[in-house]
């Protein structure tokens, strides 16, 4: 039987994150995300030149309601983002680090831009992988934190987050000035996802430096909505809609560890030590199938499962 194949005309932009010494940064390697000319893993139909990237998340504060599973792994480095990042990279093989400048949030400590700069410098020094730097998502604080953090990482071609429909000018200006990539974020809404991309490119921001965050619903908490939006956007991109032809980033770790399934002791649900990372891994693998290019994970066991799955899907 002959396979029915689609002929796609579009291609997802390839975004390069990180700059080595030769490119004016200090990273030991760069990552490439995107570049697909077909739906995820349809290698019989088109190309998927870049393996999806597995990033791990580092917060700039001790988590308020820490999960016991995560505490067992990271308890010793919580409070020190540099060491936390080092552990993710050296022990667990994280390919990128996403630095969450969470403590700048008015409800999470309301720390200032100096604190953000310090965090960024520590992580840059501790690890050689490319960074994602993400502000807390409150416009008035983001507009202070992002320019400072961006400048502290100038030339490193980090992925800065996030530009949203109502607040994108500061981040775009910072990323243009300091040579970074940006995340365009939308609230599980394909129309807004497209709109933010238009707004950002209208300011002259290059399309090969944009990664889309469609907002991830965790497994059991709206994952299917995210899935269908990503699928629709990717189909449009491959059909020639260049405005949507950006790689995706999925904060699946963050969403998974909010769920009661990763927190609650419950005998009927099985051992939480196995269950919690599995919950994250299953969500992450679903995001891969939806077309995600960068997965931001929390638990090393989840990362291991996803990596094995990728080995199988992509061939080692």
């Amino acid at each position: 039987m002959e396979l029915v194949k689609e002929k796609w005309t579009g291609k997802v932009h390839e975004v390069i994150i990180g700059a080595t010494g030769a490119e004016g940064g200090t990273r030991t390697a760069v990552v490439r995300a995107g570049g697909e000319t077909t739906m995820p893993f349809y290698d019989f139909e088109g190309g998927m030149p870049n393996r999806p990237v597995l990033a791990m998340e580092v917060l700039d504060k001790i988590p308020d309601e820490p999960s016991e599973s995560l505490k067992k792994v990271f308890g010793d480095v919580w409070g020190d983002p540099g060491e936390w990042a080092r552990k993710c990279v050296e022990e667990f093989g994280a390919e990128m680090i996403s630095v969450q400048l969470l403590s700048a949030h008015p409800d999470e400590g309301d720390t200032d831009e100096k604190h953000a700069v310090e965090t960024v410098r520590k992580v840059l020094k501790a690890v050689g992988v490319p960074l994602i730097i993400r502000a807390p998502g409150v416009a008035e604080k983001d507009n202070l934190i992002i320019p400072a953090a961006s400048q502290a990482a100038a030339g490193e071609r980090v992925l800065l987050g996030s530009a949203v429909q109502d607040n994108y000018k500061t981040i775009v200006a910072s990323a243009l000035a300091d040579g970074h990539c940006i995340i365009t974020e939308s609230p599980i809404d394909i129309n807004i996802a497209k709109q933010v991309n238009i707004l950002v490119t209208d300011m002259g921001f290059p399309t090969d430096r944009i990664v889309m965050d469609p907002t991830t619903g965790g497994l059991g908490y709206g994952l299917e909505y995210t899935f269908s939006i990503m699928e629709r956007a990717r189909l449009a991109a491959l059909g020639g809609d260049t405005v949507l032809a950006q790689p995706f980033i999925s904060y699946i770790g963050q969403e998974s560890w909010r769920a009661k399934e990763t927190k609650a002791e419950n005998e009927e649900w099985g051992d939480i030590e196995k269950r919690a990372p599995l919950w994250e891994a299953v969500g992450a693998i679903s995001m891969l199938q939806a077309g995600s290019d960068i997965l931001v994970l929390r638990h090393p066991h989840a990362l291991k499962i996803v990596r094995q799955m990728l080995d199988e899907l992509m061939g080692k």
Partner: peptide, 13 residues
Amino acid sequence: IYCDSFLEAYRQK
């Protein structure tokens, strides 16, 4: 796919 700036989005695309 709809977005508020749909005329512009088409032209840019």
